[in-house]
C-alpha cells in the first residue's frame, strides 16, 4: 500500500508498504530516518518516541497505515541543519544531553530527547516554571536507559529547561 504523511515539515510518500509494517519501520527503512530506535517493539522502552500530531508516542506501536495524512516529528526534526553543511544547530535539550553527560551508548537518547523536549515545551515553553526532579522523572518514566542510571539525564533535562527559561522565548 501507499502511505503519505508529513515528516519534520515535509510531505512524504512511502510506496509498497506491507500492511503489517509499523510507522517506525517506514521511518527507518523507507524514509531514511533511522534516528528513532527500535529496541523493544512493544512500546516499553520509548527509544522510538516521536511526535504524532503533536503528541509523543512510540512509533513502533503505530501501524504504518495509521500515519496516513498525519504530522510526524522525529528526533531528526528537532535540530536544524546549516545550509552550508556545517554542524547542525542543536535543540536546547540535545545540547544539554551532551553537556550533562546524559549520553553513553546513546541508543535511548533520541527517544529521551523527544520526550524531554515535550516536557520542556509543556512547562517553560508555555511560560511555566522549570519542572522539579519528580516531575522530570515522571515524564520520562516510559523511556528506558541501561547505561547511565538516569542521574545525568535528570541533570540534562533540568539544564535544558533552565536555559530555555533564561532565554525567555515562549515558543
Amino acid at each position: 500500500m501507499r502511505v503519505s504523511f508529513n515528516v519534520n515539515g515535509a510531505d512524504v510518500t512511502a510506496e509498497d508498504v506491507w500492511p503489517g509494517e509499523s510507522l517506525l519501520y517506514v521511518l527507518r527503512e523507507r524514509l531514511g530516518l533511522p534516528g528513532s530506535k527500535n529496541a523493544c517493539e512493544q512500546g516499553e522502552c520509548g527509544s522510538c518516541t516521536v511526535y504524532f500530531d503533536g503528541v509523543t508516542a512510540c512509533a513502533c506501536m503505530i501501524a504504518a497505515g495509521q500515519a496516513q495524512g498525519r504530522r510526524v516529528r522525529t528526533v531528526e526534526g528537532l535540530s536544524q541543519g546549516s545550509e552550508r553543511g556545517g554542524p547542525r544547530r542543536l535543540d536546547d535539550v540535545q545540547e544539554a544531553f551532551v553537556a550533562a553527560g546524559a549520553v553513553q551508548c546513546g541508543f535511548c537518547t533520541p527517544g529521551l530527547v523527544v520526550q524531554a523536549h515535550d516536557l520542556v515545551e509543556r512547562t517553560v515553553g508555555r511560560g511555566g516554571p522549570v519542572p522539579g526532579d519528580a516531575e522530570i522523572r515522571e515524564a520520562l518514566a516510559g523511556n528506558l536507559c541501561r547505561c547511565t542510571g538516569y542521574g545525568m539525564i535528570v541533570d540534562a533535562v533540568r539544564l535544558a529547561a533552565e536555559r530555555r527559561a533564561a532565554s525567555g522565548s515562549g515558543a
Partner: peptide, 23 residues
C-alpha cells in the same frame, strides 16, 4: 578534565549510525 564525547552530538541528533541503522 571532562571534555564532551566526540560522538555525543551525533547520538543526540539521531545521526549516529548504529549497527541496526545500516542500509
Amino acid at each position: 578534565a571532562s571534555p564532551r564525547r566526540p560522538d555525543g552530538t551525533l547520538k543526540a541528533t539521531g545521526e549516529f549510525a548504529y549497527s541496526s541503522d545500516l542500509w
